[in-house]
Design a protein around this nucleic acid. Structure first.
Lengths: 222, 222, 222, 222
DNA sequence: TATGAATGAGACTTCATTCAT
DNA sequence: AATGAATGAAGTCTCATTCAT
């Protein structure tokens, strides 16, 4: 038999290790592996094999759980959005504070969340599944619309056209996050964001200046 | 202006086998072919051969003018940004009007420009060359910074932190364009955009309401 | 031993589309296919696809086993050298005869071996991997050095500078083989080779002429 | 017109400079450019354009003088062999010395010549034209045959089979040169070469030892 | 005779997906 | 359900050679 001493590229015919898992568990493992992989490298370079390798599964196993790579991306997207919404609804359940205060907080949470996505954002919102619509109940725009509507009804938010305002709101949040991610200076970016939000959406009151001052200075206003 | 590729090359005809061109012309043809191709299909699916086919050139010819596909994308980006800046500086040269009026107009031009980019935007600002920095003098942020500075100096614009505001401005413009592209309803999107801009950046004056009313609903859309 | 590729794959037949093999076997098949291909045509014209076609594998399969074409060549080289060395050590294990006699025999084996390489020699010793060093334990020079040292110690070989003599020895063996390959007349070439070896390396003895005569014209060629 | 700021790959449409030359001169320029190019890089990486660029000619001009790349290689080979032969015949014309002395000198010249070829050797003797026969009157073997014949006739050289000995002689010369090229230690290699030559080809004389000693020590004998 | 833009076959390599085991 | 070897379409890029000017 031909035997070479070059081991660099010799496939090892290891004894097959089968890990039989509950299908749900296996799916979760793959999903979480995907999260790690997509975070850790440029998402366009991520390959199916990276995911299965990290999940301790065989390449083919992937296709038992996801019809295609794009479907995985959609699943990742769904997962992340859902988890954000869960956290968010928890936050708004025990809302005691004034709507605007909660709203500003939420916006900053949102920015942080996107910052933490890192590469994942690219993979999920741009890239091949950019055009596949997000289920309405998960979309950031839906979320923000709901928030804005509540704010308007409570009289703390200016009565803007919610349909059109939500995407604008999302974009400034996202841009702020991107800026922080790429250039740092969270302080400055955040301050400018809050300034914009207050000018745009906070209902002017008779003693507006004081009210704003009362909201305080987390962001430095000038 | 981008001209449609000669019909001769749309289908296989008995056209001359070889077209010898001045290198500058050939480069232009390739670039314009690329513009068409990137507009007409999902940019991630576009291949070198699509471009050369549409330009009526052989595949290898591409590599005489661009070292790689990415270099083409950079060239396309540069071309588009340059051409926008040229138009823009023409507009602002013969500025007679009030800064704010010009500014609103410019924002709407900008939106239109992005709308017209369509798929190209994806190809140029996201995708493989997303991380290659844009020469400063061509970047939208630089442009918008300059605009804002002028506005602030002229006293028409609120004294915001230009560094941070420019990206936010860009993002709302871009988002508006995207919205128009995907969902239509230019009227609504534009109105909300203007509303945001005025609330955010227009210096409040004593008789602010009237001044705003004088500005009108939104400038005539072209 | 290299076996001819299964007739099933010589022409397009309704043979099974996929042959799943143990990786070791597949590697061997590819290596043996490579041996055939490199022997049968000008090695510089040999392509990956030639090898996979002959091995009844898909092109991509090649890259599961060899990172690149050059790596294949190295593997082929290693294989051939190893197999020669194996045969050789078998021959010298059951050495009963006088060193010089064994040495002459070995030289003629060596020539035969090179003759049989044919085109392969070109592919392996010249060509793109010519500058990648051969692992010392496989190199012909190492082998010949060992032989010479033994001969010198046993008093049958002239005390030459082994370091420098081994390459010279290799070159005359190789040249003899090349000559036989291209012009034939093995008889004549071999005789001249032996004449050179005896003049150069055989220790002169008092009754040298007779001793040489006793060695005979040249050993029986196989 | 599309104008980009990326000059890295912009073809310069320089005014065509035509250098009309006497065809022979042009051919010589190309040939000499080829010599330089083939010496300066790995010959398999040498391209037509490298040669024309160095010769200050256009790519197409090459094909007015050489039907193909291989023909250039043949021309280079012919040129080098001819020039060596010219030098050599000059040396042997004013031969005053003893044949063997001249012969050893010639061998050392030969080695030096090959050493100086460097990469060129690869390009000319191996590589794509390795199998195209060398015109007899230029071949090293022919040369060496003539030398040997003269030596035999003059009684200084052993009466070997010239046909078979010439290639062997060539190969040891060549191997010596290669060794010097790759590992240095000219001294050692040369000494071993001379030792081989004397043992193989120098006619034994009654007082052989003394004669050899008289030939002296340029190479150290042990 | 000279030029250099253009050609296009063909090489290498990758990897999502399939499927025999 | 799991495995991982196998597939092959697709894509990038090179360069000897051709040919319009």
């Amino acid at each position: 038999m031909v035997k070479t001493s070059d081991d660099r590229f010799t496939k090892k015919s290891s004894a097959p290790k089968r890990r039989r898992l509950n299908p749900d568990e296996r799916r979760v493992e793959l999903l979480e592996a995907a999260l790690q992989v997509l975070r850790s490298r440029d998402p366009v370079d991520a390959r199916v094999e990276d995911v299965t390798a990290r999940a301790g599964a065989a390449k083919g196993t992937f296709y038992l759980y996801f019809p295609s790579w794009n479907d995985l991306l959609v699943a990742v997207r769904t997962h992340l959005l859902s988890s954000y919404i869960n956290e968010m609804s928890r936050r708004w359940t025990d809302e005691s504070a004034n709507w605007w205060v909660s709203f500003e907080k939420e916006c900053l949470y949102f920015v942080d969340y996107i910052v933490e996505l890192g590469n994942l954002h690219q993979a999920i919102f741009h890239g091949p599944i950019a055009d596949q619509p997000i289920e309405a109940e998960l979309s950031a725009n839906t979320l923000l619309s709901i928030l804005l509507k509540e704010g308007i009804e409570s009289g703390h938010c200016r009565p803007v056209d919610v349909e059109a305002a939500a995407p604008l709101l999302f974009s400034v949040l996202h841009t702020t996050a991107d800026g922080i991610l790429h250039e740092g200076d969270k302080q400055q970016k955040t301050a400018s964001l809050i300034e914009l939000l207050r000018a745009w959406l906070l209902v002017p009151t008779p003693n507006h200046e004081e009210a704003v001052k009362a909201l305080g200075g987390s962001p430095k206003l000038r």
